[in-house]
């Protein structure tokens, strides 16, 4: 495939007895947003750091643009941009000075980076803050500035490690708009996130658990893989509901969500009336019982369950 930009094969990293990343295989294509999803300690950051060549893997290979990253780390740096959870901004430099600093390190011609910076600052609504010190920006603006610094050299591959953690919803939306714009330009992106609603915005997802890849597919494809169905029961006080539903036959997992519970059942048509009946018999209030399409969170729990990797 000509448009594969990132390819990882058998990628592994151990820290003493702990296997942080366990034989990962995946590819990312041009103009694709590839999401790494998993709980804390699943190996997302370690994978990112190896892709960015700031950490050497114990095993496996990484190719970016067909170049072996482990053998020629210097040659890929020009094409790759890495944005860690906290981008390394100089808080005592201004917005403009930070951009200029990273542009110079990548030796971007001044006319080029100036016009790129102008466009990106305008797009992210930050033109009025150019002379402000980075340390005086809000969390969301800092991340946007980090992204601008990371993009000032027009990379073909963008690695984003939980870029929106601690960022307000408005900034998050703007942030994703920038990412969609980059996708249109053909940038390959690897993004790790703890927000499952963000995972749904990715083109493809890799579910990681304890360093290993559990599943890798499009969000829709992953949902199709989920056996059984999801039933949503809404209630003001979901706790008693959770107590009842989890004991019923055919219910594999019950998740508390904000507005009620999500019950993962083997067969919706058969179990829905049974649940309704059981709730009625217990006299617990429930405002709505219906089959819903699973969220990524449901999916994640269900797929891990299916793989028997949960203990």
């Amino acid at each position: 495939m000509a448009d594969v930009v990132v390819e990882a094969r058998g990628l592994s990293k151990r820290f003493g007895a702990l296997t942080a990343v366990d034989r990962l295989d995946f590819t990312v294509r041009r103009g694709e947003i590839f999401g790494l999803v998993g709980p804390d300690g699943a190996g997302k950051t370690t994978t990112m750091r190896m892709l960015a060549s700031v950490m050497l893997p114990d095993d496996g290979q990484i190719e970016i643009d067909g170049i072996d990253v482990l053998r020629h780390p210097e040659r890929t740096k020009q094409h790759v941009s890495y944005m860690p959870q906290r981008f390394g901004l100089y808080e005592d430099l201004t917005v403009d000075e930070n951009i200029r600093f990273y542009a110079d390190l990548f030796e971007v011609p001044p006319q080029v980076w100036r016009s790129r910076a102008d466009a990106m600052l305008t797009a992210s609504d930050m033109t009025t803050f150019r002379a402000r010190l980075a340390g005086q920006l809000s969390g969301g603006m800092k991340q946007k500035l980090g992204l601008i610094c990371a993009l000032v050299h027009t990379p073909g591959v963008l690695l984003l490690d939980e870029p929106t953690t601690g960022v307000d919803p408005v900034s998050r939306r703007e942030f994703w708009e920038i990412l969609y714009g980059l996708r249109g330009e053909g940038v390959a992106m690897v993004i790790s996130t703890a927000y499952l609603d963000e995972a749904e915005r990715c083109d493809r997802l890799a579910l990681l658990h304890r360093g290993a890849m559990v599943h890798c597919d499009t969000p829709a494809g992953l949902k199709a893989r989920m056996p059984g169905a999801m039933i949503e029961i809404m209630a003001a006080d979901p706790r008693p509901l959770w107590e009842i539903v989890r004991t019923l036959p055919g219910v594999k997992e019950v998740l508390l969500v904000g507005t009620g519970v999500h019950a993962h059942v083997d067969d919706a048509d058969r179990r829905l009336p049974e649940i309704e009946q059981a709730i009625g018999a217990a006299g617990v209030a429930a405002s709505r019982i219906a089959r819903v399409s699973p969220s990524i969170e449901d999916l994640f729990v269900a797929l891990l369950e299916l793989n028997g990797k949960r203990d």
Partner: peptide, 17 residues
Amino acid sequence: REREVGTLEQILVTPIR
């Protein structure tokens, strides 16, 4: 300080030697 703040790692992913 660069190590502490994280700018050192950021600089190292640039082509600087």
